[in-house]
Structures are given as C-alpha cells and as structure tokens.
Design a binder for these strands. Sequence first.
DNA 1: TAGTTGATATAGACAGGAGTAATGGCAATG
DNA 2: CATTGCCATTACTCCTGTCTATATCAACTA
Lengths: 297, 297
Amino acid sequence: MENLELYRAFYWTAVERNLSRAAERLFITQPSVSHAIKQLEEALSVTLFNRMPKGVTLTEVGALLFEHVDKAFRELESAERQIAEINNLVRGELRIGSSDSLCKYYLLPHLGQFYNEHPDIHLDLVHGTTPEIIRQVKDGRIDFGIVRLPLNDDSLVTLEATVVQDCFVAGGRFAELASKPLSLADLAAHYPIILFAKTSSSRQFIQELAAQLGVELQPEIELASVDLLIEFAKAGMGISFVTKQFVMNELEAGELTELKLKESIPPRRIGIVYMKNRRLSPASRALIEQHLQVKLP
Amino acid sequence: MENLELYRAFYWTAVERNLSRAAERLFITQPSVSHAIKQLEEALSVTLFNRMPKGVTLTEVGALLFEHVDKAFRELESAERQIAEINNLVRGELRIGSSDSLCKYYLLPHLGQFYNEHPDIHLDLVHGTTPEIIRQVKDGRIDFGIVRLPLNDDSLVTLEATVVQDCFVAGGRFAELASKPLSLADLAAHYPIILFAKTSSSRQFIQELAAQLGVELQPEIELASVDLLIEFAKAGMGISFVTKQFVMNELEAGELTELKLKESIPPRRIGIVYMKNRRLSPASRALIEQHLQVKLP
DNA sequence: TAGTTGATATAGACAGGAGTAATGGCAATG
DNA sequence: CATTGCCATTACTCCTGTCTATATCAACTA
C-alpha cells in the first residue's frame, strides 16, 4: 500500500458501517471517506464494502483485511499509549552516569525520593571515569552524566549542579593536628598521606595543586574507593584527601577532623552534562529540575 | 498519531539506521525523511533516534516504538499478501447459490474441475428457492446465484448460462407409452403424474403451461427432490416431469424413456445473476468464464 | 405515485503540506 | 587538513487530500 492513511478511513468505516459516521470520526467529510475507500479498493483490486441502501457492510475480503488492520492499529495505539506513559513519568527508564563517588554521595540521596515518587521508572546507574561517562553520553547509552567541571566540549550541555570543597581529614592519633594550621608542604613532609588512585580526577586535582605550590605529594597509601579513604583516616592510618561534603557525617560525629590548611583549596564544581542535540527524557528532566534542583535551560 | 505515513519513514529509518538509505527505500529524498522523523518525534514528544556521525541509532523509546510499528507493518503486509493470493486464485472463497436441482445437475460437474485446479479456494454452496437466492445475492452472502430465467430486477446482472428442456419421462410398465405421441390432456386424464413440490419453479412452470392449454394437471404423487422424481418414474410409479438434461444417464441406460408429447414444452433458460454494483471475486470470474463457459460483460 | 429521508458517488476547485534541490554544518578518517 | 559521509535547514513547487455542491439510489410514507 502506498498510503497508510487510507487504512484509517477503512478502519472507521468498517467499525461504523456507515461512511458518514466514519467521516465524523475522522473529522472529514463523507465524500472524502468515499474517495478514500475507493482508492484503497483500487489499490488492492478488491471490493471491501457492500454498498447497501442503509450503509455498508464488509465483504469477505474486507472482513479479512479488517482483522489485520484492527490488530495493526491496536499495536500502534499500544505504542503511543506507552510513550504517553513515559512522557507522564508513570513509566520509563532513567540512565545516569556519574564519575566515582558522586554517585553514592551526591546522586543516591536524591534518587531515593525520586524512586518513591516514580516507582515504575527503571533506574540504571553506571559509573566510570569522566571520559567514560562522556563517551556513554555521546553514544546515547545514558541520558546524562554527573561529572566534575570544568569540561570543554561544545557538543555537550553543561549545567553546574553543586559545588564541593575538598579537604584533608584526620582521625585517631592524627586528629590533634586539627588544632593548628598546617601548610601543604608540612603535611607532605611529615605525615602519611592517603590519596585516591591515580586515575581519579580528585587525585589529579590535588596533585596538580601541590605541584603549583612546589610541593611533591607522595602518598603513603593509595586507595580505590572513597569509603576506604574515610575508613583509613578514621583508623588513624594517615591523612586523607576527601570531599568535605562526603564526610559530613564523620566530621559531625567527631570520628574525623578537618585539618586547617594554610593554603586554600579551590572549590570544585560538579555538573550535569548531556548531549546538546538530544532532548532529555521526561524522567531526566524531572529528576534534574525537581530533585537535584538544577535549572534546565 | 495524525499521519500514519510518518511511521513508514520511521520504520525504514530504524531498519536502515541511516536517513539517506531509508530515503532510497521510500523513493523520496533524505530531507523528506529527516522532516518526517522530526514530525513524528514532535507528535510523540520524544526523541526516537540518536543522531550519530555515521547514521542514527534508535533511542530507548524509539526501540519501544519500533517493536510495535514492526508488528503493525507485518500485520498489514500479511493482509495485503493474503489479498494478493485471493486475487491470484491461490486462495479465497466461492459462495454460490443455486435453486433446487441446478446445484447438483448443472453446477456440481463443473465444480469438480474447478476444485482440482484451485484446491485452496473454499467452496460454499447454498441452495434455496429463486427468491431466497436473490435475497442472498443482494445481501452479499453469496457471490452469485444460478437460477431459472427470466428475472426482471434492475439491480442484478443476468447472464444466460444454458438452456434446459423439460419433459415427461416414464419407466417400468409405463415405458411403452413412449411409442406414440400423447397430448398433455391424455396424460393428465389417464396416467398417474408425478410432480415436484408446489413451491418449485418447475412445478409452477408446467402447471401454468397446462392451464394455458386448458388442462388441469392434478399430480398423483408430489415429491420434494429431483432424485425422487427420477426414482419413482424408474420404478414405474407414474410419469415424472423432469428436466431432460438431468435424466440423461437414465435415458441413455434405458431406465427411463422420454414421452413424445403433442404439445411442445418451451425450453427454459438458466442464468447467472449477481449484483450490478458489485465486482465479482476473481474466483467467481474464473469459474463463470473458464468453467461454466459463460462470457462476462 | 410523488415526496421525503438517509444513504453513497461524482465533479470540480482549492489550499496545505509533502517533496525537492541546494546548502550548511558536523564528526570521523586517513 | 582536506575529504567523505552523515543529518538539518531553507525556500519553493506542485500534488493530493479535502471540501462544497450536486447527483443518484433505495426504502419508506402519506
């Protein structure tokens, strides 16, 4: 068939058994329906309706066709209904990528509420390094990513989500260091430093900062997770470089203490990134605007 | 959706993963496809494709939609294929109505050959009185009818199919009557007459003919089937009024003998009738033209 | 039997929109 | 860094789907 719209006229005519009523359903006039049916009949070289004095009835072939057209239309309706549901947030999928610890400490708390409000939206969280996240955003495998800024990529939209402050924390026998300001050089020279693994942006950040200050930062211990950084510091194994917001609980509980550093550590911006030429899914928009409280353009 | 044609563009784009190739499939240009996809996306308020440097890929929603569109299209294709088969006589249905004995003696012999040639065309034979057949033709319940002519109904097409000759036949002890010509009055007065039931056109025919000749035809025996008319005559129970063509076998075998009547019985025309404003199915056309050897207009 | 009602079919005109050609922009590739 | 192979945009053309008006037909109805 060269024109699927004809099937719509056929469908309603078959349902209503009356061209005029079908026309009303289709919001067109009766001659248009008549014409459409005729075109369809000619295209298929069959008679689909018996024209009776008081309406039309399906021929055998018409009835055969109707069965299939009916199924096809139900199929399309079903698809459209499901898409409407996705648009209305009653179902859908939310795929978010976040680098390293941002997932647990920034995203997770907000996701809880989102999940309560939209339990049928399937969550898919991936984590990886910032380049990995960017890659997946570009490939369309995730809806958006949460990464540390700055980022310069013209094909991405970057929204500042929050700002975090890194700091050195100590616990156990090193807790007393908190009383007096220290310089980074002092720390590096006299205390065991615990840093995140080399690949992390956090590690690169402090390493570069130290280098600018002419300090060579050589960690005593390298760990692959923020949780371990915290635990090692709590155990008094050394001084961990962590994001302050991520250790709030421990600081308030007195299990960790923030060291006063003579040099100031610049805050680091956390951003939401997604493809410029791609529309965010309704679920993404809802999460970003309503839960993460980030204003979308 | 207000325009089903957009789904076609969507379908091929999803299959080809490339707007330009989809355009080729659709015999339109790439910008048209691009435009169509865009319209569909706006109508559904979703993004269906990720535009990649080397083509497009389906988004999650796009993939969901594709499943359904694919099914819908298969459904329509299936319908169109079946209709094509009906047009090509590899399948279909043939619904024929014939009054009384015409079915067995005229139609059946030809149907055998038709069935051999087109074994997958379903045959549906209905028989009834001429008015019943006409009614069913008009209601579209049968494709065409085979009835005795004349018939004056402007909404029907009437084609003369064959001509039959009625006659009186006898068997057994009455067979000797065949040697000398008899008048209808003689027959009516001195011999037991066996006629078909009152409702039949055959009965009305001979009754009217007799009345015109001033003869009152009072049957000794009334029967409801041609077979019984034949059997009773063969058994010598009386003289049956039958269609000569229907008793050919018995005449040739000598089981029955045709009486010589002084009056001539006019031949009766048998016709094919169908609705003027309805197209005959391919199967009907084939049977009528090729097997019944009746030329269609 | 003429008139009415409730259907579908046909004819002709018109406007909206699908399609086109030309062009631009972008990303990957060698 | 030019080339290639994509998709998007624009401006214009022309087709076709739709409309109005009218014809036609069958079944009632008075």
